[in-house]
C-alpha cells in the first residue's frame, strides 16, 4: 500500500501528456443535448407558449424594425423581412468579415452593423438587446441544418479553434475534448455530459434564469475547469465557435433552445 502510494506520488509532479482521443464524433453520431434532456424540459422548448426564450425574441423583433436614430435605417430598412433575409444565416456563422479581415460571429456582426451602418454604439455583451436581436436572427434558421462555409480564409480560425478545444487548460488539467469528445453520454455528478454542440444559442438556461450566448456558456465551462475565461468577444471565442459549428454540422438549429 505504501509502495503504491509512493509510486503514485512520484509521477504526480509531471504533467501527463495529452491523452485526447484523436477522432472527432462522426457526423452520423452527432447528437444535440436536446436528446438527453428530461421530457419536461424538451416540452418547454417545443411549446411555443412555454419557451421563455420567446420573450427575448419579442424584444429582438422590435429592435429589428426600430431605427436607432431618425436619420438612420433600422435593420429591416436594409435587410427587409427577417424571415426571408436572415433565413439560414445563423447556421453558417461565424464567417469572414471583409472590413476587419478576421472571422466574426453573429453577435459581432450585429454590433459591427450597428457601428458601420446605423451609426450607433454597439450593444454590451449579454445585454437584453444584443441577446434579443441575436436570438431573433438565429431563430430564423431554426430547423435548418448547420453548414460549414467552404471559405479558405476561415482555415486558421478552424485550426485555432480545434487547438483550443483539445488543449488542456486550468488547474484541473482538462480540455473541452476530455469531456465532450472523450466522455460524452457519461455523467459528471448528476449531469449528463453532452457532446457540446452549439445548436440552440442564444438559449434559455434554467440555471441562468435567462437567455445567454454561447460565449457565456464557454466562460462557464472554463470557470468550471478552473481556467481563466477569455473576455467576451475575444478572437479565441470566435475561433472556438467556428470549430464547434463545424463539429456540430449537420445538426439542425434550435434557437431559442432551453437547457437545464
Amino acid at each position: 500500500m505504501l509502495a503504491a502510494l509512493a509510486t503514485g506520488s512520484a509521477g504526480a509532479g509531471e504533467i501527463p501528456p495529452a491523452e485526447i482521443p484523436p477522432s472527432e464524433i462522426p457526423p452520423a453520431e452527432r447528437r444535440s443535448s436536446f436528446d438527453g434532456m428530461s421530457p419536461d424540459i424538451q416540452a418547454m422548448q417545443r411549446d411555443a407558449d412555454a419557451n421563455p426564450g420567446l420573450l427575448w425574441l419579442q424584444d429582438g423583433a422590435d429592435l429589428w424594425s426600430t431605427a436607432p436614430a431618425p436619420d438612420r435605417p433600422a435593420c429591416a430598412g436594409c435587410h427587409g423581412e427577417a424571415a426571408t433575409a436572415m433565413r439560414g444565416v445563423a447556421a453558417r456563422y461565424p464567417t469572414w468579415d471583409e472590413a476587419t479581415a478576421a472571422p466574426i460571429d453573429l453577435q459581432g456582426r450585429i454590433n459591427a452593423c450597428r457601428r458601420r451602418h446605423q451609426g450607433a454604439e454597439p450593444y454590451a455583451y449579454e445585454s437584453r438587446e444584443l441577446l434579443g436581436l441575436t436570438a431573433y436572427v438565429a431563430a430564423q434558421s431554426a430547423g435548418l441544418p448547420i453548414t460549414t462555409p467552404a471559405d479558405a480564409r476561415l482555415g486558421s480560425a478552424r485550426s485555432a479553434g480545434r487547438a483550443l478545444f483539445t488543449r488542456r487548460m486550468g488547474q484541473l488539467g482538462l480540455s473541452c475534448a476530455a469531456c465532450h469528445d472523450g466522455n460524452h453520454g457519461r455523467r459528471l455528478g448528476a449531469a449528463l455530459i453532452p457532446q457540446g454542440h452549439p445548436t440552440g444559442y442564444p438559449l434559455y438556461r434554467l440555471e441562468w434564469q435567462g437567455l445567454g450566448s454561447v460565449q457565456r456558456r464557454l466562460r462557464n465551462c472554463m470557470t468550471g475547469m478552473r481556467a481563466e475565461p477569455f473576455a467576451y468577444g475575444a478572437p479565441e471565442f470566435v475561433a472556438l465557435e467556428r470549430y464547434l459549428m463545424d463539429r456540430a454540422a449537420p445538426l439542425p438549429m434550435e434557437t431559442p433552445a432551453v437547457r437545464p
Binding site: 411549446d47 411555443a48 407558449d49 412555454a50 421563455p52 420567446l54 420573450l55 419579442q58 434564469q209
Partner: peptide
C-alpha cells in the same frame, strides 16, 4: 414586461380549456 398568453381560438360551450401565461420578470 413582455408576455405570452395562449387562449384557444374557439371553444364549445361547457368545454374545459387550458390557458397558458408567461411573463418576463426577474423575480
Amino acid at each position: 414586461a413582455r408576455t405570452l398568453i395562449n387562449v384557444p381560438k374557439a371553444a364549445t360551450a361547457g368545454e374545459v380549456v387550458t390557458i397558458k401565461t408567461l411573463i418576463s420578470h426577474p423575480m
